[in-house]
Amino acid sequence: MTVAVALHDWSSLQALLRDQGHPAVATGSSPGLVWIEVARGAWLTSAAWLHREGCATFIDLTVTDLWLPNTSPRAPGRFVVQLVLAAGGGTRVALRTRLRASELALPSVTSLWPGANWFEREAFDLYGLRVTEHPDLRRILLYAEFMGHPLRKDYEKQRRQPLVRVGPLSKLGQG
């Protein structure tokens, strides 16, 4: 099933989500991309629906920290998690949800797209997105000793967590 069909049948997702008490928050499109924003509780239902309707290819999973510079630096941020899928015909479909920092958790979509595994680990590693029911939720880029999540805006820019530091060990001017 192509994305054209999926869009044509968009209302069936709306109806499905309404039945579950989580109606879609917003939808929209830009050239080459159709997006739908849903409530957190509708994340897995919507993903499964898109998977059924022909979005077979997982492209990306992104997180954005919407912290604004004018607010207090320690204010809990709001986050947008976006799941990007390809449905054939050159169109991409994005599923989005907004989360507060205090509830930065989502169910895993690895049961639908196994390739999402490492992307969810990356979102956990760098943003602290707690992915429930993930088969192997460990840090993927940083080391296990690392504290915090460095791409969040409340991570101090200057904070370093070295594993080895014995320097500076310049030997300039010797010998």
Binding site: F124, L129, L137, M147, H149, P162, L163, V164, R165, V166
Partner: peptide, 13 residues
């Protein structure tokens, strides 16, 4: 070398 504290990350399940 000074080892960083071996606590688990905040967001770890």
């Amino acid at each position: 070398p000074k080892a960083p504290p071996r606590k688990r990350g905040k967001g770890k399940p």
